[in-house]
Every structure is written in structure tokens, then in C-alpha cells.
Amino acid sequence: MSTHLATPTTGKVTFGGVLRSESIRFFSLNSTRVLILVAVVLNMGIAVLGVWGVGSLASEAPPMPGVPDMTSPEFTAELLGSGLAFSQLILGVLGVLLMSGEFTTGSAVSTFLASPQRLRVLGAKAVLITILSALAQLISSVLTYLVCLPLAKNYNMKLDFFGSHFQNVLWYGALAVVMAALIGLALGAILRNSAGGITSLVALFFVLPLVTGLLTMLADWVQNVVQFLPNQLGMSLALPLSSPSDLELWQQLVGVAGWTLIPLILGAWLLKARDI
């Protein structure tokens, strides 16, 4: 066997290079493709079920007085976003795995030998998961619209792509999913463990709202806290009719920014300070 390599190299590490490296690995893993596919299908399936359920109910019983008309174009648009919580969860899990996988497989050693500047790696992963989860959710919402359009027509429900309610579902839905994915990434960096990261994510998005929901019966101020929980923020932004909030739009956006940045900053600090 030979022991010599001929091709000369430059080897300067750049953010673009690290981003390319992360993408190569990300797209070579089957788990990535499966999770994104599941997120899209689930988001679509739940919306279809929602439109079908509401449509068939409404066609049997005329709307009751005092109850909002569920077949109005506004509500119908929001039905298309009913799978949002599941998209958040699945793409959040993808975020966890993107970081925790480095530590559970030991590949962190190779990663940080190739780029000893650790925050550059975290930054590249954050950019990658932001672009991917936003794209996945946007495509998923558009596909959902296209699939639900004939179904809604069948029940005489109207859908308007450019109406403000579907636009909320489309763009704020994507924002909510990006927030979840970045919280997942931060949890992966903080806990360095896939099971722990995913459990924390589920606790934050599903268990905490349930618990605080029960507590609102005991104290009023809990209601204010609930509105700032990440899943509630996503819901009230994307689906303001079905998940109303007392908060102003800017307050909700500040809440999203806080939930995105604070865990990431904590994760970045720990990644820099701890040994690999």
C-alpha cells in the first residue's frame, strides 16, 4: 500500500464550507428524509380530516345561532393549519437530532477537528435547520391547500389562498415551526442526548400547556403565562380565530424571538465552554 497523498490543498475553513459540510451529512441520513416526509404528510392529513369532519357535520346540521360558523372562509383557512402542532413537534425533533447526533455517535470529534470554532458549527446548523424547516412547512401548507381545495368545494366551503387567514397559516405557521426546530437544536446542544432532548421538547410543547391549562382554573395570572408558551404563541399567530390571544402582535413576536434566541444562546455558551 502507498502512504502518500498527492493533491495539494488549501484548507481554509469558512462558514460556507461548514454549512456545505452540514448539508452533505444532513441529506445523506435517512432519518432526515423520513422525518420531513412524516411532518408534511401529517400536516396535510390532519387538515384533510379537519375539512372533511367540519364539512360533513355542517352539511347535516345547519349552523346554530350564537355559535360561529365553522364553514366560513376564515375558519376553513385555519382548518388547514390544524396539523401545525405536529409539524412543530416533528421538525423540533429533527432539530434535536441534528445536534445531539454529534454527541451520541461520537461524530462531534470529527466535526470539531474540522472546524475548531464551535460556534461556527452551531451557526451553520441553525441556518440549515431554519431554511429546511421553513421550506418544509411552506411546501406542506401549499400542498395542503391544493389537496383541500376540491374537498372544501365539495362541502360548499370557500378557500382563499391570498386571504389574510390562509396567509397567517402559511407564514406564521412556518415561523412557529422554525421556532420549534431551533428550540430543538438548542436542547440538543444543551442536553447532548437524543432521548432527553426529545422528551424535553415534548414536555415543552405538549405537557406544559396541559398542566398550565389546568392551573388557569386556580389562578388568573397563569393565563398570561400560558399565552407566552411556545406552542400557544405559534397557534395564536397562525390561527388567531381558533386560538385567540390577549397579546398584541408585537408581544407575540417578541415571545417567539425570546423562545428562539434564549435557548440558542444558552446552548452556544455551553457548547463553547464544555469539553467535547
Binding site: T9, G11, V18, E22, R25, L29, T105, G106, S110
Partner: peptide, 26 residues
């Protein structure tokens, strides 16, 4: 430093390509 400091679901080539990409190595 450690044998198999690589994601288990990657091939050797993909792992090396990803590492090389950080430094623009061909």
C-alpha cells in the same frame, strides 16, 4: 482520536466528503 467518530448511518465517502467540504478540500 477515537475509532468510528462518525455518524453510523453515513458511508466512509460521505463522511470524508463532509469533512473535506469545511475546508474546501477537493
Amino acid at each position: 482520536l477515537e475509532a468510528k467518530s462518525v455518524h453510523k448511518s453515513l458511508t466512509a465517502r460521505t463522511h470524508l466528503r463532509a469533512m473535506a467540504a469545511t475546508g474546501g478540500i477537493s
